[in-house]
Computed example of a mutant assay.
Amino acid sequence: MSKLLEADASTDEGLKIIMAGFAKAAVTVVVPAILFVIVAQWLQLFQTGWVQSRTDNLFYVGQNLAFAGLVLTGHIFWVSISRATPNAEKWQEGHRPSIGTTLDMAQRIALNTLEQTVIFALAQLALASVLPPESIDATRALLVVWIAGRLMYVVGYRKHPFYRSYGFNATILPSLFALLYAAFRIVFG
């Protein structure tokens, strides 16, 4: 992996190494995510017996968004704790912390989580509007993949900024696929 981390994107060879790394990250994340969604629906892992209408779909997705909100709240709490923790560097109110500090990393991760939460919420609502009630459990499976992606993002980022790509892909790709599917269903029925 050090070859990947040392690759120079300004050269053709370096760009090939980086793109191969991103492709590997996408496949490593997307294939298990798709398999999980399929298996979760096949095994009926999530209780959906009470979902009978599109309105119920929205209530079901609202439950999903409560968990996404908890993830976002946890990241914001981490920023608060990092800000309050005394360290050698004096953080000045209104100024960005030094790059690479715990507070800087916490703020960057929280900002990305906020962005991803908005995209995820839109994807969940879009799916709720087009899925029949008997398929709404797909949104819950995507929630599990999304939460796993957020955890992968944090763990990867803490190891090295490049490794956040695995968690980023695990988070954004299911949301992107969901939005594309919803748009397809809206346009073509």
Rank of each mutant, 00 (worst) to 15 (best):
S2E: 15
K3E: 14
L4M: 02
E6M: 11
A7I: 13
A7W: 07
D8Y: 13
A9R: 07
A9N: 09
S10T: 14
S10P: 07
L15K: 14
L15P: 06
I18H: 05
G21H: 04
F22T: 15
K24N: 15
A25E: 11
A25Q: 12
A25L: 11
A25K: 09
T28H: 09
L35Y: 11
L35S: 15
A40R: 03
Q41H: 13
W42S: 12
Q44T: 15
R54K: 10
T55K: 06
D56L: 02
V61H: 00
V61G: 00
N64G: 08
A66E: 12
G69C: 09
L70P: 06
G74I: 08
G74C: 01
G74N: 10
F77Y: 02
A84P: 09
A84E: 12
P86T: 10
N87L: 00
K90L: 04
K90H: 05
K90I: 07
W91N: 15
P97N: 13
P97I: 05
I99T: 11
T102V: 04
T102E: 06
N112R: 13
L114G: 04
V118I: 14
A121I: 03
A123G: 07
L127C: 01
A128E: 06
L131I: 03
P132A: 07
E134W: 04
S135L: 01
D137G: 13
A138V: 07
T139L: 03
R140F: 11
A141L: 03
L142W: 11
L142C: 03
L143Q: 01
W146C: 04
W146S: 00
R150C: 01
V154M: 08
V154Q: 01
V155A: 06
R158T: 13
R158G: 05
R158M: 15
P161M: 06
R164S: 07
F168N: 04
A170C: 08
A170V: 04
T171F: 05
P174G: 06
S175N: 15
L176G: 11
R185K: 02
F188A: 01
